[in-house]
């Protein structure tokens, strides 16, 4: 029943302990306390998908989870997925296809499409569109993103 709680969690493989105000949500915590500014804030009511991060392997809205709820959990952000190389091929495909413009939605978009790739490597274009249907992008019109994901899935499947 505290308003500040000492919390230990793993962020991109590093164990972190902080005293966290309980009202602080996960994305604010990552950005303000940890300095991981790659995860963005777009709406703070769970609609835009810009704050998407991975908690215990599942994508979640960072604005709809309290940071203290991540106690003992494994949180991964765009910085972590980039540094590990896990999504290097997706990033490369996005780059080649110009599947981003302002880039503000891109970290959340990449986490979401990687989630799809892990769950459904055979996803069709329609399924790609469905899976990113909760990630708002004002710049691209989405087609380039769908193209880049499709290209990556085909490439991954041919290697598998």
């Amino acid at each position: 029943m505290d308003t500040i709680i000492e919390t230990t969690l793993t962020i991109n493989g590093e164990s972190v302990t902080r005293r966290i105000p309980v009202r602080q949500n996960l994305v604010d915590f990552l950005r303000e306390e940890i300095g991981l500014t790659g995860t963005h804030i777009g709406c703070e009511h769970g609609v835009c998908g810009a704050c998407t991060v991975r908690v215990d392997g599942k994508i979640v809205r960072g604005c709809l989870m309290l940071a203290v709820q991540a106690d003992g959990r494994n949180v991964e952000t765009i910085e972590g997925l980039s540094d590990s190389g896990e999504i290097a091929d997706l990033q490369d495909a996005f780059h080649k296809r110009n599947a981003l413009q302002c880039g503000f939605c891109t970290p959340g978009m990449l986490l979401t499409v990687q989630d799809l790739a892990l769950q459904n490597p055979q996803a069709t274009r329609e399924q790609i569109r469905e899976h990113i249907s909760g990630n708002y992008c004002r710049c691209t019109g989405y087609q380039a993103i769908v193209d880049a994901v499709e290209t990556t899935l085909i490439a991954r499947n041919s290697k598998a």
Binding site: T37, G38, E79, F94, H95, N98, L100
Partner: peptide, 21 residues
């Protein structure tokens, strides 16, 4: 030619105004 400046955005390493410390 792909945009050189897109690489940082793809890795979450952009600097939007709210990212400044």
């Amino acid at each position: 030619i792909p945009r050189a400046n897109a690489r940082r955005l793809l890795q979450g390493r952009g600097t939007y105004t709210d990212d400044l410390r």
